[in-house]
Every structure is written in C-alpha cells, then in structure tokens.
Amino acid sequence: MGIISRAFQGRPRDHDEKLPPGQYLVHDFPVLSAGPTPRVPLDRWEFAIDTPEGEVHRWSWEEFQALPQETPTVDLHCVTKWSKFGTEWKGVSLDVLMEDVESAAEYALAYSYGGYTTNLPLEDLLDGKAWIVHEFDGEELAPAHGGPARLLVPHLYLWKSAKWVKGIRLLNDDWPGFWETAGYHNYGDPWREQRYQGD
C-alpha cells in the first residue's frame, strides 16, 4: 500500500477502474498521423467486404446510410498512452454489414483510403464489438479523425480502429497490418498492455 491514499489523488475511483494500465486520461482528442490525410468525396466513397471464397459485398455512401444505425458511447485507449472516456459515435455495426457474408475465414484485414492496414481476428469485429462510424459527437466525422468513415473497435488500442476505412478483407490466415509489421503488438489489448511485439 502506498503512502498516498486514493482520496488524496482527487480522482474518482470509477475512473481508475476504467483506465487500463499505463494510460492517462485526456479531454481533448489528439490526432496522430502516419501520412497525408485522404479526402474522399462521398459520391466516390465505397465500403467493401470480401472473402477468401470470392464473395464481395459493396456499399455506396447512400446504401451505407440506409442501413440500421447505432449510437455507441465508448472509451478510447491509444497505444501512445492517452485514454478518452465516453466518446459518442454514430454508425453501422459490423454485425449488420456481415449479416449476408458467408465465409469460413477467421481473420480480418481492414484497409483504408491512403493505404493504411490493420489486422485483427474476425471475432473481434462481431457480437456488438465493432462499428463503421461516420459521426462523432453529433457532427459528421472530420477527415483528421478518419472521416468520412472509420472503423471503431474500442476494446483494442486505437490503431486498430482504422481511419478512412475502405474495406475489410476476410482471410484464412492472419496478415499483420501497417503498425503490426513495424513493431507494434499483433493483437493490442489495452487491459493486457499489449503495446509492442513481445509484450
């Protein structure tokens, strides 16, 4: 037990419990960038899911907007150690997008306008755990934060929530993405502090 008790730290206990190890709380929304910000006109925007069996499912912006929408409120955890609580989004659950997709694939690779990629097990995209979101805090999603639409997978570090998402490729074998091949952890669970390869 430390000399300084929780009471003297001035932080509510529930915040401590919501903060994964090694993280600190921010109230702004930092922008991290690995390249130029893509500007994608909505009339040319498309989202696709393809499978190793050869199926391709595509949605135009209008078709995507016509799908059932959800408004998840989630905590975000960035591998650079900031966390942001209670962020409000609007978008389409991956469960809806995957409804008519038939595949035996177990892995997924999200890819983006601009060339970014990130990989995760398919099960991490299902059962209410992931969305393609297009609004943040009641406003259309700004390009700096991944607009027109980004993947949102809040139970993993934020680099898995690919900005400017263009599609998801389902795969029989795991295919590490941009940061996963550059030193970051293949899975990225903030509660197990899986930041770098070998963590």
Binding site: L32, G35, P36, W159, W179, Y184
Partner: peptide
C-alpha cells in the same frame, strides 16, 4: 510523419 505512434518517412 509522427513521432507517435512511430516515425513514418514517405
């Protein structure tokens, strides 16, 4: 670009 989460030189 960067420096976080890593330096990316294009």
């Amino acid at each position: 670009y960067g420096p976080e989460p890593g330096l990316v030189a294009r």
